[in-house]
Computed example of a mutant assay.
Amino acid sequence: MLNSRPASQKIPAQRAFLRAGLLATVVGAALASSGPAATAAEQGSGASDTAAGFKAAAEGLTAPVSGTVSGTGRGLGESLTVVKKLPLNPMANTGSDPLNNAVATQVADFREVSTAALTGPLARGATLTELPLVGPVVGTAIDTLPH
């Protein structure tokens, strides 16, 4: 018994890829079928009418897609704005915080090297944008998304 998962149960990512492939197939079929129908209906009109028919079909398909993409971008921007304000360590400032530790060492008269710069912000309950090095980059990336 190599696989304990039933055959009918699929991974959600696989379903998403299958649905995306099906959507692409339907859109492609719609684009492909609208061309010959427009050509047959406008046989004597000329090539410019056929091009206008293709353009109208393309605009009819891109408007809903662009609206969906815009809505998805706004939803992602709003949800990540909330996420960037949440504390990363729920056990921060408690007695049982596993990240409230720092190790330091000093060799001879060189400057001390410590892990407090990395674990300190998490132990204090920092948010995603307050982390050193990563915080400003993530904050800027989230702020560029539409809200």
Rank of each mutant, 00 (worst) to 15 (best):
V26R: 07
T72M: 06
L118M: 08
L99A: 04
A51V: 05
A58E: 08
T25E: 10
A102S: 15
S79Y: 10
R74C: 01
S79M: 12
S66V: 03
T68D: 07
I11M: 10
G67A: 15
A108S: 15
G35E: 09
R19S: 10
G71T: 06
N101M: 13
L122H: 05
L122F: 00
A104F: 01
L145D: 04
A41R: 14
S66E: 15
G35N: 05
P132E: 03
L2G: 12
A58I: 07
A30D: 08
G46M: 09
R5M: 08
A126Q: 04
P6I: 01
P12V: 00
A117S: 13
H147V: 15
A7W: 15
G67M: 07
D109P: 02
A56Y: 03
V82A: 13
R19V: 08
A116V: 13
V27P: 00
T68S: 07
A57E: 05
A38H: 07
A16W: 07
S48Y: 02
L23V: 06
T119N: 14
G77Q: 09
A116W: 05
A104I: 05
A58D: 05
P136S: 09
M91S: 12
A52L: 09
A16E: 13
G60W: 04
E130T: 03
L133E: 09
D49R: 05
T105D: 13
K84Y: 03
A52T: 04
N100E: 05
T140D: 09
V134Q: 02
N93D: 06
A13L: 14
T119M: 12
P87G: 06
K85W: 12
R74S: 11
T119A: 11
V113N: 10
G60K: 01
D97A: 03
P36A: 07
G77D: 01
R5N: 12
G35F: 13
R15K: 10
A108H: 12
F110E: 13
S70I: 03
A32E: 13
R19W: 12
T129M: 10
K55E: 11
S66D: 11
N89R: 08
S70D: 14
P87D: 02
A24T: 11
A41K: 14
G139V: 00
G53E: 02
E112A: 06
P64E: 06
A58R: 04
D143Y: 12
T72G: 09
T140W: 06
S79G: 06
L61M: 13
G28Y: 15
D97K: 02
D143R: 15
A52R: 06
P6G: 01
F54R: 08
L86F: 01
P98N: 10
